[in-house]
């Protein structure tokens, strides 16, 4: 089964803004967020989209 057009993971540097119901990766800073984001992009075959300075999502299109 392939999940498409759904948020597969959320990366955030601000725990207060993390949503529920989805895998959330709490990152210490932006550099760590980008590093984990790049890994998740390759693993999940999705695209990392940046919504705000503190939140990134991984979506498979």
């Amino acid at each position: 089964m392939t999940l498409e057009k759904v948020i597969l993971a959320v990366l955030t540097t601000n725990p207060k803004k993390a949503p529920s119901g989805v895998a959330v990766f709490h990152c210490d800073n932006e550099t760590e967020m980008y590093r984990i984001g790049a890994n998740l992009e390759a693993i999940l075959d999705g695209i990392a989209h940046k919504l705000t300075e503190e939140i990134m999502i991984i979506v498979k299109h």
């Binding site: 980008y34 984001g37 790049a38 992009e41 695209i47 990392a48 989209h49 940046k50 990134m56 999502i57």
Partner: peptide, 19 residues
Amino acid sequence: GEGLYVDNIYIMNIGLPER
């Protein structure tokens, strides 16, 4: 920002600076 454009046409959001 993170939005990729061709002329004034929005293409997509690319989050990683590397990409």
